[in-house]
């Protein structure tokens, strides 16, 4: 049996000792590692969350990937190319973390392309101008950082370590986005309009990235108890808004929320309510680009099948030849 990547232990009924040991490890804020005993619910929750995160990285390559071939300067082309490549890398780190829990990447990919596992709703919105590349870096990667930096302390070791690596790279992503927007805001009036238009379109979907409000997020409490998640959706959303407001001021753009204002008493910004019905529709598959995103991923996977098979066949032939050579 595979020794590095644990197979799922038989059942939860592994005995009170194991459960106690697990609980104590979590309570001491120590990491659970692949071969430790863990409750089945913990394993399943983690696989679902990590897979969804990995899928988001891979599907998330598409909206920006569209602009690599069209980037208006060679410097921007190189930066965007490197960024989208990083996302493939992040997806791979995360699938690799999921595999330490006994999941299989081919199986997770099947689940994605059959629509049985989700990815972040944000990637179902279209990218309409090059300013979108900047705004995705600023908002979407900014929101991802808010979500992910706490996950560097997630209780599951391989996930936490993958997040450390990813967060460092995301930081480069956010900065390149903001820098692009600053450059565009110093450019022509047309460019400034492009930036404001992109801000208007991406603001609310970005707030929705943190998930439904806490009172409508049934799984959050258990995930927080297990220290898989460290902060609630609303907490992270508020943190993102507080950070972004002053960045928007520096940039000279207006965030499209008339209710947005500083609340001295709370020490945070008040802001409007995202359209949760829209979020639900997009999650259920009715966003502007759901079909297109899934179709692209499915096609790439299916059209790559003969390549993967050929490599497997060649490796088998090589092994057989080597064995024959050894015998002879």
């Amino acid at each position: 049996m595979d020794t590095t990547h644990s197979s799922p232990p038989g059942a939860d009924g592994a005995g009170p000792d194991l459960q106690q040991h697990f609980d104590a490890t979590i309570a001491r804020d120590q990491r659970i590692e692949p071969r430790d005993w863990m409750p089945e619910g913990y394993r399943k929750t983690l696989i679902r969350q990590i897979a969804q995160h990995a899928h988001s990285e891979i599907i998330g390559m598409q909206p920006e990937g569209e602009w690599i071939t069209r980037a208006p300067s060679l410097r921007r082309k190189a930066i965007l190319f490197a960024k989208v490549q990083d996302e493939a890398g992040h997806g791979l780190y995360l699938y690799s973390a999921a595999e330490t829990l006994g999941a299989d990447r081919a199986d997770l990919t099947e689940r994605l392309i059959e629509g049985r596992q989700k990815y972040s709703s944000i990637f179902n919105y279209p990218t309409l101008s090059f300013a979108d590349v900047g705004v995705i870096g600023w908002f979407v990667d900014g929101a991802a950082i808010c979500n992910q930096v706490p996950l560097c302390r997630s209780s599951y070791g391989p996930y936490a370590r993958a997040m450390v690596r990813i967060c460092k790279e995301e930081s480069f992503h956010q900065r390149q986005g903001y820098e692009l927007l600053m450059t565009m805001m110093r450019g022509t009036p047309e460019q400034r309009e492009m930036v404001q238009d992109a801000v208007n379109r991406w603001w609310w979907p970005s707030l929705m990235m943190f998930g439904p409000p806490d009172d409508a997020s049934p799984n959050s409490a258990q995930s927080m108890a297990w220290k898989i998640k460290r902060h609630s959706n609303d907490e992270l959303r508020r943190r993102f808004v507080d950070m972004t407001v002053s960045q928007a001021e520096k940039l000279g753009v207006t965030l499209p929320d008339p209710e947005l204002r500083w609340n001295e008493e709370r020490g945070h910004h008040d802001f409007g309510t995202p359209d949760w019905d829209e979020l639900m529709r997009v999650i259920k598959g009715d966003g502007p680009c759901n079909d297109q995103r899934m179709e692209r991923r499915r096609t790439a996977h299916e059209e790559g099948a003969w390549v993967r098979e050929a490599a497997t066949a060649h490796a088998a032939k090589q092994a057989a030849r080597a064995e024959k050579g050894a015998v002879a």
Partner: peptide
């Protein structure tokens, strides 16, 4: 660059 999101496997991306 046109291969991006179309490669036969993620490692090849």
């Amino acid at each position: 660059a046109e291969w991006t999101t179309r490669a036969p496997e993620l490692e090849e991306e």
